[in-house]
Amino acid sequence: MRFIQSWYASNCDGEWEHEFGIRIATTDNPGWHIEVDVRETDLQGVIVPREKLDLPGGGWMIAWSDGSVFQAACGPLCLGYVDALFERMTEGAAAVEGGKSD
């Protein structure tokens, strides 16, 4: 979860982190559920359709974003895949932002 940690730290400005943040919980599947509040960040408004992925070694991940909250659920050994997907989402948003003309 190195990228998500870095992304979180980069958005902490003395105000944002008091209202928004990241929640990570275990599930009884077993697995994880992650919620990253992207409001008031560069990812606000970025929609990611819900997608289920079968991962190596029997792992799994479901992820989506409604433009306000990025959510993912995954198997107990799959947090790295969530981190990588979130990083790709961020890079994609930056590419779109960089291509906008004023």
Rank of each mutant, 00 (worst) to 15 (best):
C74I: 04
W60R: 00
M89D: 00
V46F: 12
R50F: 06
C12P: 09
I62L: 05
E17T: 07
E51Y: 09
S101P: 03
D102W: 10
D37Y: 06
I24V: 10
G21L: 00
V82T: 09
A84V: 05
A94S: 13
T26F: 07
E19V: 13
I4Y: 08
L77K: 07
I24G: 01
Q5K: 13
I47G: 09
A93G: 08
A25G: 06
S65R: 04
P49Q: 15
E51W: 09
G92Y: 02
A93N: 06
Y81V: 01
E87L: 15
G80N: 14
G80H: 15
R50Y: 06
G99Q: 08
D42P: 03
T26C: 13
C74M: 03
S65W: 10
S6N: 03
H18L: 11
T26V: 10
R88D: 05
V82R: 08
V36P: 06
I34P: 14
W7H: 02
F20P: 01
V36F: 06
P49T: 11
S65M: 08
A84D: 12
D54E: 10
R23G: 04
I62D: 03
G67N: 05
W16E: 14
A84E: 10
E51M: 14
F70G: 10
V48H: 07
L53Y: 08
P56S: 04
P76N: 06
D13K: 08
A63R: 03
D66M: 01
A72V: 01
E17R: 07
G92P: 00
C74F: 10
M1Q: 05
L55V: 02
